[in-house]
């Protein structure tokens, strides 16, 4: 009994430490976003708090528009990325697929290239192509550009889940006469759902955070929150409080959204709760 209690305390201690590690930087963002006076040499905490930076940002305009753009693009990127990668992840991951065709292996290997392709080089390379295709400063253009990085992330997350599914399930279904589509939808999808969600969330979070490609390819019609943050933390000029306040415009709604998703779609989140 005592041992049990000690273990519980140890569990709480470890989780508490993890929570502290995660929350410390977030706490600092809040501190900065609301600090209107803070002389760091003499004060550990801000001397005065206020809403000044939020008022200023809202006064500068475009925030709401940029927020809508950010979320809309991220959602479209997540969905289209999943549509493109799900069938491919099945071929790469499911153990009943031998995947030993050269072409398939080539595609799989090549899908890692974007991960190490500096976005600024991608952007510059795409500029002339987009100009020719008339995709500059358009929503489909930005979505496609974001998918470049989202695809390998989603793919990796899903392939892992496909591998975990015992091959006997598919074989059994096949023997009973199930078709490819049926197997994918009824056998695999429920089993790999965590991987799909993880892939979708990675695509979503990547797109939500990206600013170089939007800057290069989306200007002047498409502006997102990270682009605005970049403008305030551009290296040559940095306004910590306004950048922090802007960061909250992105962070708070996203977390609220995540929280809602977890509550409503039980058991189907990235990390299956309570399993």
């Amino acid at each position: 009994m005592r041992r049990h209690r000690a273990q519980r305390w140890a569990n709480h201690a470890v989780l508490g430490l993890v929570a502290l590690l995660i929350l410390l930087p977030v706490f600092v963002v809040f501190e900065y976003a609301f600090a209107t006076k803070w002389f760091p040499a003499h004060w550990w905490f801000p001397q005065e708090f206020g809403m000044r930076w939020f008022e200023r940002l809202l006064g500068l305009g475009n925030i709401v528009n940029a927020m809508i753009n950010s979320y809309m693009i991220a959602a479209i990127v997540a969905v289209t990325t999943l549509l493109v990668t799900f069938p491919a992840a099945y071929v790469f991951g499911a153990r009943t697929r031998r995947g030993d065709s050269r072409l398939i292996r080539l595609v799989e290997g090549f899908s890692s290239v974007p991960l190490a392709f500096p976005t600024i080089a991608v952007g510059i390379g795409l500029l002339p192509v987009y100009a020719k295709l008339g995709l500059l400063s358009s929503l489909p253009g930005v979505v496609a550009a974001h998918m470049i990085m989202a695809v390998p992330y989603a793919l990796r997350a899903m392939v892992g889940s496909f591998i975990m599914v015992p091959p006997e399930y598919e074989e059994a279904a096949r023997n009973l006469g199930a078709g490819r589509f049926y197997v994918l939808r009824r056998i695999y999808l429920p089993l790999v759902w965590p991987g799909v969600m993880a892939g979708g969330i990675f695509a979503f979070s990547w797109s939500l955070n990206e600013f170089v490609l939007v800057l290069l390819l989306g200007y002047p019609n498409i502006e997102t929150i990270p682009v605005q943050i970049y403008q305030f933390v551009g290296g040559y000029y940095l306004h910590p409080q306004q950048a922090a306040a802007l960061g909250l415009f992105l962070l708070v709604p996203t977390l609220a959204l995540m929280f809602l998703v977890e509550r409503t779609v039980r058991g189907s989140t990235v990390v299956p709760a309570g399993a």
Partner: peptide, 26 residues
């Protein structure tokens, strides 16, 4: 340990912190 709602939510925070803000916070 069941990954309760709170923890599952907490652990995802770093994924959604804008990169530049994170760098500056550190």
């Amino acid at each position: 340990i069941a990954l309760g709602q709170v923890m599952s939510f907490l652990v995802k925070i770093p994924l959604f912190m804008p990169y530049l803000v994170t760098a500056f916070v550190f």
